[in-house]
Every structure is written in C-alpha cells, then in structure tokens.
Design a protein around this nucleic acid. Structure first.
Lengths: 196, 196, 196, 196
DNA sequence: GATGAATGAGCATTCATTCAT
DNA sequence: CATGAATGAATGCTCATTCAT
C-alpha cells in the first residue's frame, strides 16, 4: 500500500473515531460536521472527500461497529464440542453483552440501531456470509429460514432489552437479568426449531 | 368549559395531529416547526404558547399515543374467565399488533419509542396506575417485581420485533410471525414466573 | 379621588416599580414588556393602557426618579444661614451621593441617564421651576445663565464621575474621592461666577 | 502578507465601518446584524467569522475609535517646551474636542462610552502603556496615582459635558463653553496636584 | 377598563456545501 | 489532494401589538 493510500485510510479512520465519540456523547442530531472536523483537526472541505454527508458517515460507522461486535463474539467465544445450539448462542449473546458492558459508549451509539434492518444490510453488503457462518458455527440442525428467524428474534430481543438494563440497571441490573434472558433465549430457540 | 378553553384544546390537538402526520411521513429530524404551523394553519408564535419546542411536542405525542394504544388494548380485549395470564397477555399483544397493523403511521412514529423508558414515564406520570391495572386484569399470580419484569420483557420483545414484520414483512409477514411470537411470549412469561 | 382613579394610579406605580427593578438588574435592552407584566401580575394588554411602549415607560421612570433624587437633596439638606453658595451646592451634592450610595440600583439605572438632556426635560416639563428654586436656595449672586451653566457643569461632572467610584471604587472609593470632588466643584463654581 | 489575509482584514474593516455608520445614525439597539451585512454587501454568515455578535463588534469598535482619538490627540498636538502640565492637557483636550466637532458621528457613537471603564480596558489591553505616555508627555510632576485620578476626572468631565454642547449647543455652544472648560480643567488639575 | 390568546414580522444564529487558492 | 473563507438558505425563537371576550 502506498504512503498516500495509508494516509487516506488514517484520515478516514480519524474522522470516524472522532464522529463516534461525538455521536455517542452529544447525539447525532446535535453533532455538526464542523464539530467533527474541528475535533479531528482536519479541514472542512476534506470531510467531503471521504463522506457524502453526516448520515453517510453514520451508516458506515454503524456497519463498522456492528461487524466488529459480531466478529468478536463469533471468533472469541470458546465453544465446547458437546454444546447445543442453544448453549452456543447463549455464549455468543453473553460475549456481546460483556462487550457492551465494557463499552457503554458503543451501546449508547448503536442504541436501537443494531436492529434487524442494519444487521440485514451488514450481512448482505458484507463480504462475509454471516448466515452461513452461523449455520456452521452453531451446527444448526434446522433450515435456513428457521435460522434467519431465530437470529432475528434473538437479536431484537437482546438488543432491545439490554439497553436500559446495562446503562441504567432498569428494571434490574445485568447480572440479575441474565438468568431471565438465558431462559427466554432458550425458549425462543426451541419455539423456532419446533416449527415445522 | 369556556369557549376560550375549548378553542385552546382544539388548537393544541390540531398541532399535535399535524405534527404526528409530519413526523410519521418525514421523520422528526426533517420536520421543522415552520412546517408544522404552516400545515396546521396557525401562526408561528402560537406554537410556543403550547409547546416549549419540537421535542417537547414529540414527548407529549409519544405519551399520548402510547396511552391510547395501551388503553385500547386493556379495555377492548375480551377475556374469558378461564383464560390464563399467558392467554390474556397474548390477547392484549394481539390487540396492540392489530392496532399497529391498521395504523402503520403510528407504528412508524413510535418506532422504537414505545420502549420501557417511555412506558415507564407514561406509567409513573399518568394518573392511571397501570401496573395495578395489569395485576388485576391478568389475575397475576406472582409478585410485583416479577410482573414488572414480565411486562418489560414482553413489551421490548414485541415492540422491537413487530416493526419490520408489520411494515416490511421482513423476515416474514405478521400472520406467519404470530405463532412464533405467541410461543416466545408464553415462554418468557413462564421463565419469569418460575423465578423464585 | 375615586376608587377607580386610585386603582389606576396603583397599577401604574406597580408597573413602574417592577420595570425599575428589571431594568436595573437585567438592563433595558434585555427586559421585555412580557417580563414586566408577568412580574407585576398584570395582563399584557393592560400595559398599553398606561404606556405607549417600553421606552415611554423608561422616560417616565427616569424623570420620576430624577425628580425624587433632586427633591430629596433640595429639601432634606440642612443649610446654615452663613453658608456660601459653594458650601450649599456641596451639601446638595453630598446628599445626592449618599442617596446613590445607599441605592446602587438607582445609580445603575440612571447610570449616565441623569444627564443634562434628561434634567432639562425634567425641569421644563415639571410643574416645579427648579432653576428658580436653585436661585433662591443658593442665594445665587450671579445671573440666570451663569446659574444654568453652573448647574450643568456640576451635574455632569458629579454624574459622570460617581458611577464607577460608587459601584466599583474605581479609581478610588467614594470617601477618598470626595475631597477631590469638593475642590473641583468649588473651582468649577468659581470659574463660572468669575465669568463676566 | 498573503492575499487571503489581506482580504480578511479588508472584510473586517468593511464590517466595522458599516456598523459604525449605522450605529451612529440609528443607534445600536435599532441596528440589526442583517442591516450591517446588507449594507456592507457581505453574506450573513460571514459576520460570524469575524464577530461573536453585535456587542462584540461594538466593543471592538469603541476601543478602536477611542484609541484612534487619543493617539491623534497625543501625537498631533504641538506642545511648547515651556508649557505647564495644565497647558499641555488643555491642548490635548482641545484637540479631542476639535476631532469630535469635525466628526459628530464619532461623538454620537462613543456618546458616553468613552468613559473610564472603556478607557481603562483600552489602556490595559492595549500594547501601548498610555499612563506612562501621559506621564512623560506632560512632564508630570506628581505621582502615578495622582496622574490616574487627574486623567479620570478630566476625561469624565470633558466627556460628559461636551456631548450636548457640541451636538446641540446646549446650554451654550462650544466656543462659549471652552473658557469655562479650560478654567475648570485647570482647577481640577490643581486640586489633584495639591493633594498630598 | 381588563384580559390574554393570537399574531407574524423580525431577529440571531447555524450549518452543509462550494470553490478559489 | 487539502484547505478554510465565504455563502445564504433554513431554522428556532422572541416580542410588541392587536382585539375579541
């Protein structure tokens, strides 16, 4: 990679990091492009060499962060050979929760953004075929559509409940919530698999 | 009620209805106060007699619509005497889903807004004690904290999954989704009740 | 005086007092008619029954306060029979300074407003012939135009110097300033009287 | 200096000149930023690249004009070697009065603004040490604090009296006023110097 | 007389976007 | 490629004033 290319990537990363920090703390609506470039120490015009506008950056940021989150969960979770699919998915979910607990900024940012819609886009646009990855990783016993449905429901369920649990310990804190969550995830999976 | 008071209520309602329509179609960020008052046929200054700013209106709107939604579900759903709490809550959930299917604008507006946070505020600020209402209506066999947890999880689960299902039939359409949903809700409730 | 008349005077006084308080603390530019009527507990429309606008009120207020200030100085200062005109005017000046020291709000309000221009208007519009009063009180030995000039110069001098002296003790505090002031006033008077 | 830098200075000067003209003729309260930029032929947003708001511009303008006024008086007045400090200060005062007479706009603008407060700020912020300059120029025989006091009193006295004299010839015109002024200034100086 | 809801012109301020350097 | 001065449309908000009750 040429030095110029490297420099460009570094600038882009700088802008994304700065934007992430600002989006997390002030919210997207209250963050202006001026804020971002000023904080990043880059000229205003330069922004437009990398992103079409604020929302273009936001989208790239969400995809980037989502993929990072998923990739970590899939690659860093240690599975035992004899684990059932339910066990495995719970291991994955717990890893995600741990990541988010350690990084509340990230949680606040993706907030409700880590939804099916974004995930779907991330899956389809990404070079990685995540569904296939899931299928293999989980030793998924059912069909593709059941897998898709399962991922959808678990994803939405975990994503929507963990926000206030992690950030505000409301209605209970994460450690008290996990047993409920595990049981709910297991039964969601069962309900999916038992569908003919 | 005096004629003036009546007129004021009508003006406020007019503003809220207009804003709801615009928020739903263009999104809140892209709706300006100018848009609202112009559409409502009301002077700009008048807006500020009723709302502090756009977000004040938004909040009032969310609470208003949420309460309407819940109230309809609680009062219009017909329960049988012998229904279990799970049966009853599924009846309620189905009523909510039907309302949202018939009124996609409403769904798009409250989007992910009908979350625990808003609901919690609606519950506490409201003159109605919704938790007590639930307790009585469901003939709830467990404790208050279990009830609160159950409501939280079901609420978040239904709220987060139904969006793309109803609006985009993604990953499946509502009729195909309901069986999964029902089973998931039942198991969530069981997992809550079985917690000591 | 009828009860209605009385009520009107009371309303006007209420408005003027409230406005004075607000003008003093926030400045005239930053005080709106809304502020005034709200603080006074009076309806907005009522304001216009008493004053044309904010600046009408301001002018009336300045004249009112100026006259009060002067009247006190002229009536409450005790002169000795053998006092020279210079002695007497210094007694008057000191009384004014004492009033202002005790009431910094008043000083801040009339700030630089107690100028010749306002005083001139106060003199001419007022039912009291202040120049004649001065003439008699001071046993003024010279002509009318000399008296007018003297009053003008002393007034402007005292008015312009005392502001920062009283409020900020800058460049020195009032007690240290008085000797200078007295000497300056005496010499100003002499320079006026010695003009043929 | 780069072409860009030059252009910026020119824009700032343009804005200040235009604002000065408008402030003088309509008053600050009645001059809007829209007025200024329109008259200056500059885009609205550009204003905020140079000034925080209207009052920021006003302050910079006052300091700028005050310094100009003082500098002219100090450098352009011709002193004779044998002049006393009183003679010299009267020469300076007369130069200032002449400047103001020739430029009533300036007088109206700085109105009562050329007060100790502003002057003090101008002195302290300025790179020039004005008090030292005075000390040397006047061959001042007394101490620093006496000098400060003298400058304060003369400044306030001249500043406050000349306004209506020059602009309205009230109570007399400038030529008739000068003899009084000179005598008063001399005696103020004497009263300051004679203080131990 | 008194009220205060309604008005809408007017203002300050922000900000995405462009383009000459 | 990078810059940042300049733009001006767009927006939120204020406020003096009116007028039906």
């Amino acid at each position: 990679m040429g030095k110029v290319e490297e420099n460009k990537l570094q600038k882009e990363q700088n802008l994304m990091d700065t934007a992430f920090s600002l989006f997390s703390s002030k919210g997207i609506a209250r963050t202006s492009i001026s804020d971002i470039v000023q904080q990043a120490g880059i000229a205003k015009g330069t922004f437009y060499l990398y992103f079409r506008d604020k929302y273009d950056l936001q989208e790239k940021l969400i995809i980037h962060k989502s993929e990072q989150l998923i990739r970590h969960a899939l690659t860093c979770s240690g599975f035992e050979e004899q684990d059932t699919p339910s066990d495995k998915i719970i291991t994955i979910v717990d890893d995600v929760l741990d990541q988010l607990r350690r990084n509340p900024h990230l949680l606040r940012f993706i907030d409700k953004n880590l939804s099916w819609g974004i995930f779907h886009r991330a899956i389809t646009r990404s070079e990685t075929d995540y569904l296939a990855l899931f299928e293999k990783l989980l030793s998924w016993p059912g069909g593709r559509s059941q897998l898709e449905m399962t991922v959808y429901m678990v994803l939405e369920f975990v994503g929507s409940t963990c926000y206030s649990v992690i950030l505000d310990a409301d209605p209970v804190d994460l450690d008290h919530f996990k047993p409920y969550l595990h049981r709910a995830v297991r039964s969601i999976m069962e309900s999916c698999l038992s569908a003919s």
